[in-house]
């Protein structure tokens, strides 16, 4: 089922206009005394409308920087980042972006309902209580609406953060290791939940992770990055049918793909 798309050139041409397009993107961070480190170089990445793309790479390869540039939190030093035909900052300012990070970043003084409703307040729109309830239900937090974040487990907090990211029906969803701080069992369960939630919402999504299995289970395409400076090393198309069940992770195709991508990452580590 899963097959590798040979990609001689890192550029992948997609027929419909890309929802997220990074072209020739480079990022240099200034260090002290005029020294600089190149985090990304000549990176091309296109994500189609309604596509789920996962980025994996060795730590420090700049995969989070890619995500932060798409979110408008960093500016590229060279090249362009276009999201839904606009600059990322414009998209953020029009409240069309959903984000969830490794740190849940829920407001501790606010209830779960208040946290999920936050994007409505920040967009200056009346809170759609039905939509908030729908999201709370979708992430399986019904009954915990009035709880404070600190009263919930790590997994439940991440669910709330994902509900917050989805509540405004964003054009683009950006996930930076959202389950990175969770234990392996909770993490697998959260991945199954996210796959279910995603197949209901079908939002253009970019996920950054260091977990190859997570990437293969969730994404339509997995992008493997090289170490610093980060470039696209390999693009892997994942063809498991949706909605995906945990059973696919036990299939030989899945294991084969895991081995292939892990091998690519390891080769990078020893290079």
């Amino acid at each position: 089922m899963a097959q590798t798309t040979p990609s001689p050139a890192p550029t992948l041409t997609v027929a419909p206009p890309a929802a997220v397009a990074l072209s020739g993107v480079g990022k240099t961070f200034e260090l002290s005394r005029g020294r600089a480190v190149s985090a990304l170089e000549d990176l091309d990445l296109h994500v189609a409308e309604g596509e789920f793309v996962a980025i994996v790479g060795p730590s420090g390869c700049g995969k989070s920087t890619v995500l932060r540039m798409v979110a408008g939190l960093e500016r590229p030093s060279t090249g362009t980042v276009v999201v839904e035909g606009r600059s990322p900052r414009e998209l953020a300012r029009s409240h069309r972006l959903g984000v969830a990070f490794q740190e849940h970043a829920l407001l501790p003084w606010s209830s779960i309902r208040g946290n999920v409703a936050l994007p409505f307040h920040l967009a200056g729109r009346p809170v759609d209580a039905a939509r908030v309830d729908e999201l709370v239900r979708l992430v399986g937090l019904e009954g915990f609406e009035s709880a404070r974040p600190r009263q919930l487990s790590g997994g439940m907090r991440q669910r709330a953060a994902i509900a917050r990211a989805l509540v405004l029906r964003p054009d683009v969803l950006l996930l930076d290791e959202p389950f990175g701080a969770l234990d392996a069992v909770t993490r697998r369960r959260m991945n199954r939940e996210l796959a279910r939630i995603w197949s209901e919402e079908r939002i253009t999504t970019v996920l950054v992770t260091h977990d190859v299995e997570e990437a293969l289970f969730l994404a339509d395409r997995v992008v493997v990055m090289t170490g610093r400076p980060g470039r696209v090393r390999h693009v892997h198309r994942v063809d498991f049918p949706r909605p995906r069940e945990a059973a696919i992770t036990r299939s030989p195709e899945f294991h084969e793909a895991v081995d292939l991508l892990t091998g690519l990452l390891d080769a990078e580590g020893t290079a």
Binding site: R68, G72, A92, R93, A105, L107, L118, H121, L122, A123
Partner: peptide, 20 residues
């Protein structure tokens, strides 16, 4: 903080960031 990142990505203006 990560809160600042979330507020930026959600397009919060200065007044709403101050209040919320």
């Amino acid at each position: 903080s990560t809160h600042d990142d979330v507020f930026d990505a959600l397009g919060a203006n200065r007044v709403r960031r101050l209040l919320r």
